[in-house]
Simulated scan of single mutants.
Amino acid sequence: MLRSFIQLCQPANKNLLVAADDGHATLTGGGTYAMPWHWHDCLMFILPSHGAVELRHEDRRAGTWLSQDRFAVVPSGRAHQTQAGCATHTHVAVYVTADALRRLDVGVGSLGEFRRRTRTPILVRRTAAIRALQELSLRNDMGTYGGPTIRHALSSALLMQCIAEVIAGKTLPGTSPGEHGMALVADLEAFVTSHADQDIPLDALEERFGISRRHITRLFRAGTGLSIGEFQQRTRYENACRLLAETDLPVGEVAFRVGFESGAALARAMRRLGGHAPSDLRTTMARPVKS
């Protein structure tokens, strides 16, 4: 099935279109995304933002996994299929036509190396610059004045950065299902860390990540050596140590902010995990340095 560049620029859900012109388009996708075998009359970059995406193509029907450390380039006319690794994934896809690439070849500089590297689908390291442009292009708080123009400029910059990374960056091998599992563990760690002050039922994780409670707990322990509860306690402990060292907040307030029900509960956790009390940490930090 052909999905043409014109079709890509006119998605049924207009909210998926970030920016488009006559040469390139940027779209976003997420949730329980799955696209059966198809091909494009343009080149595609696919960049996961959260979670993982499985990519299969005619040169690698066994499939490979994309996560936050890599993106894929699929040349025009190459049959492929993609699907979400978990229900909460998000990704960005950038499409560029052959005519647009020819204009860049003339106006910006030779794309000979880019064309050589993208004769077949490849995986490329996703750099901090690409990550930043990707996140900026998806922001919804740009305001009414100039919003579409800003999004188009960011989309163009993302395209150029992707091309630059293909030319000068590091190509990567395909990843295995085990590595996909580690990508999910990284997402779980990030989620638990950002919500460490809250109770996180396994049911909530199952709903958010689209995988069973049993699989979540097994995967997390295999990847970190800790249960989710133990990891959360350690994160709360580290957050409490930072607040105790950097602020004058009462111990009870520190406990509340990091997720413990009381100062006594915080003190018990600190003795168990660090071998010291909250007051010990503050005394150590306040001790003058001898010259």
Rank of each mutant, 00 (worst) to 15 (best):
T193Q: 05
H195V: 05
L104P: 01
V106G: 09
E253T: 10
R257M: 15
H195R: 04
R103K: 09
M1N: 07
E253P: 01
L249E: 10
D187L: 00
R102Y: 12
T32C: 12
A222G: 05
A129T: 03
R103M: 12
K14C: 09
D203E: 08
A25L: 14
A277M: 04
N239M: 13
H80Y: 10
E246L: 09
A267D: 10
T82N: 07
A93R: 04
E58S: 07
E230T: 12
A128F: 08
D69K: 05
E206N: 05
K290H: 05
S227I: 06
I130M: 03
E230A: 14
V251I: 11
H38Y: 03
T90W: 03
G225P: 11
C241H: 11
G252L: 04
G275E: 14
T175C: 13
T224C: 15
A52S: 15
L159Q: 09
H91K: 08
T26G: 07
C42S: 13
R257A: 13
I211M: 02
A20V: 07
V258D: 13
F5P: 01
R61Q: 11
T224R: 12
A186V: 02
R242Q: 11
A269D: 00
C162M: 06
N239E: 12
A93L: 02
G31F: 06
K170T: 12
G252H: 05
I122R: 12
R102M: 08
